[in-house]
């Protein structure tokens, strides 16, 4: 599905004393299979943008088109297109309401009007893909799961609808390092297997370095940068203007470069940075 965002603006509580403009003049195009990170400080409008893309808010100006159809339109066709955009809000486990794990996962597929056999197959598939055992989970009450498991259950509920587009809002917030690692790995696997369009909203540069190939930087409701993750996330002046620090591997590479190492500075992950440093080190015969 092609997502086109054109001249998009959004104002909360318009023409009241509490009016607040969250987005103005945003243009974007996201193609099927892209992994896009939307980065911005708190209040930069990134969650608003995500909700507009998912058709959950009506734009104040401009529009969001899903394969050419306005995302928020009140037609049956627009609704079906909207349902192709899976949206996981921050702390998606806070929306869990069913009494058993399979029923929770089945909620979305049932709303799609699928038959029982298909729903059951999707529940098993989705639980498996998030790493929850469908047999063991058959009678579990969602509220008795651990925090990490609940997060994955909530995501299974969205994945079971098989959306070609998946939006994740701060997917690793509140997870411990191990839970975070596991979630990131699984998300990348789903994305590769299903050629999903992945849109990740985050203020966590490490998450974006892992998940995104393209990063859109939002500052005060406007696009401040849109480009390959390696470029945007290693652009120190740009990030500092938006009150972010470069990721630690980039900081290290930049420090080395300043003291004469001929290293590339746009390696975002620890392993990439180490490889880069080791290569330069061995190409100089272990002498720097």
């Amino acid at each position: 599905m092609l997502i086109s965002v054109e001249g998009l603006g959004y104002t909360y509580a318009p023409s009241t004393p509490l009016a607040r403009t969250a987005l103005r003049g945003v243009d974007l195009e996201i193609r099927q299979g892209e992994r896009v990170g939307i980065l911005g400080p708190t209040g930069s409008g990134k969650s608003t943008l995500a909700q507009l893309i998912a058709g959950l808010l009506r734009p104040t100006s401009g529009h969001v088109l899903l394969d050419g159809v306005a995302a928020h339109a009140r037609t049956a066709d627009a609704r079906l297109r909207r349902l192709k955009v899976g949206m996981a809000f921050q702390y998606p486990e806070h929306q869990i309401f069913e009494q058993t794990v399979p029923r929770e996962v089945a909620f979305g597929p049932r709303n799609l009007g699928l038959n029982d056999a298909e729903v059951e197959a999707r529940v098993a598939w989705a639980l498996d893909i998030v790493g929850l055992d469908p047999v063991e989970m058959a009678d579990r009450v969602p509220l008795t799961l651990s925090g990490g498991e609940m997060r994955r259950l909530a995501l299974a509920g969205i994945l079971a609808m098989r959306p070609p587009v998946l939006i994740l809002d701060e997917p690793t917030a509140n997870l411990d390092p191990r839970g975070r690692q596991e979630l990131l790995t699984r998300v990348l696997t789903w994305q590769a297997e299903t050629e999903l369009t992945l849109i990740v909203i985050s203020h966590n540069l490490d998450d974006l370095a892992r998940l995104a190939e393209r990063v859109v930087l939002l500052v005060a409701g406007q696009v401040a940068a849109d480009g390959p993750a390696r470029e945007v996330l290693s652009d120190r002046p740009l990030l500092e203007d938006a009150s972010f620090d470069v990721p630690p591997p980039v900081a290290l590479l930049q420090a080395l470069r300043q003291s004469g190492w001929a290293v590339a500075t746009n390696r975002l992950l620890a392993e990439e940075a180490a490889t880069e440093i080791a290569q330069v080190w061995s190409s100089t015969g272990g002498m720097v």
């Binding site: 411990d176 390092p177 191990r178 630690p248 591997p249 290290l252 620890a270 180490a274 440093i277 080791a278």
Partner: peptide
């Protein structure tokens, strides 16, 4: 299950290399 500070992680990988 704790992970390492970024600098330590890079240093570990450099030692491996």
């Amino acid at each position: 299950g704790l992970g390492l500070p970024s600098a330590l992680e890079i240093a570990d990988r450099l030692r491996e290399r």
